[in-house]
């Protein structure tokens, strides 16, 4: 093993990564371009909303409930030290609506629905279903990829909203019902500090962006997967890793834009 060989290996990987990025960008543009069918034949998209959205419901609702309950407990413990337990409602609601709702729902969505999308498309490719479709004069991007993409983009904000609502309920159960924080101040503090435009709409925008990123990554990884068993399983892992990182990085960027100076 010599230095030149090692350098050549690194160079090859870099070139490969850049190449793949370009291919991915073109894939994304093609998906948008061939999206007409997803809306003209909305049934195709509805079907995919079932697979990505409805089937993720249980995990989202349960996770949201527990996250809210933990927030209620931890928040209470911390706020008690400063004698401001009444601010529990605003703490729970703000953390959920601004951050935890969109981010955690997107992370769960990536591992539940994103990985399934990658595996499905990867297998369709491995078993030549994509090729078959292409040779039947049906554009697989329009028929298979785009409906899944739009289903993800539509499902994600709804799932995030359900997660947050469930979390607020969980926080309420622990804070008010269990611990006994005053119910009136719980809700009124919450309403006084959570702004519709500033917090809730921004949360919705975040989850839209996350949904877009996760489905685009999942679909591309599936479409680009080598048509073998190892190829598909590798692509599934990459989907979860890449979309989790993308969610967290995008979250930072979006937060910086949305809440600066406020």
């Amino acid at each position: 093993m010599n230095i030149v060989g090692g350098l050549r290996g690194i160079g090859k990987r870099v070139v490969n990564a850049v190449w793949r990025t370009g291919y991915g960008a073109r894939f994304f543009v093609m998906t948008l371009r061939y999206s007409g069918m997803s809306f003209r034949r909305f049934r195709l998209t509805v079907r995919e909303i079932f697979f990505s959205g409805v089937l993720s419901l249980i995990i989202i609702l349960v996770a949201g409930m527990f996250v809210g309950m933990v927030l209620g407990l931890q928040g209470y413990e911390t706020l008690k030290r400063y004698g401001s337990e009444s601010a529990l409602g605003s703490l729970v609601a703000l953390s959920l609506v601004r951050e935890l709702g969109p981010v955690l729902a997107a992370l769960l969505f990536a591992s539940r629905a994103g990985s399934a999308m990658t595996a499905e498309i990867g297998l369709m490719k491995a078993t030549e279903q994509i090729d078959a479709m292409e040779l039947m004069a049906v554009n697989p991007i329009a028929r298979v990829v785009a409906p899944r993409f739009w289903a993800g983009v539509i499902s994600m904000p709804l799932l995030a909203a359900l997660f947050s609502a469930m979390g607020v309920f969980g926080g309420y159960v622990v804070g008010v019902v269990n611990i006994g924080v005053d119910e009136g101040s719980f809700w009124s503090q919450m309403q006084a500090s959570v702004d519709f435009q500033h917090d809730i709409l921004n949360g919705v925008i975040k989850s839209l962006v996350f949904g877009l990123a996760v489905t685009a990554i999942a679909l591309f990884e599936g479409y680009d997967a080598p048509p073998t068993a190892e190829g598909v399983s590798g692509a599934t892992t990459r989907t979860v890793v890449e979309s989790s990182l993308a969610i967290l990085m995008l979250d930072f960027i979006l937060t910086a834009f949305m809440f600066q100076g406020a």
């Binding site: 509805v46 909303i49 079932f50 959205g53 409805v54 419901l57 609601a93 609506v97 499902s155 904000p157 709804l158 799932l159 909203a161 359900l162 947050s164 609502a165 469930m166 607020v168 809700w187 919450m190 309403q191 006084a192 959570v194 702004d195 519709f196 917090d199 809730i200 919705v204």
Partner: peptide, 23 residues
């Protein structure tokens, strides 16, 4: 099921806006 999902999601948004937020 998709209908239930969409209605529940929108309801959650409305709840967030009215009950949690200051809309």
């Amino acid at each position: 099921w998709v209908g239930v999902f969409v209605v529940a999601g929108i309801a959650a948004l409305v709840v967030l806006a009215l009950k949690v937020g200051n809309l």
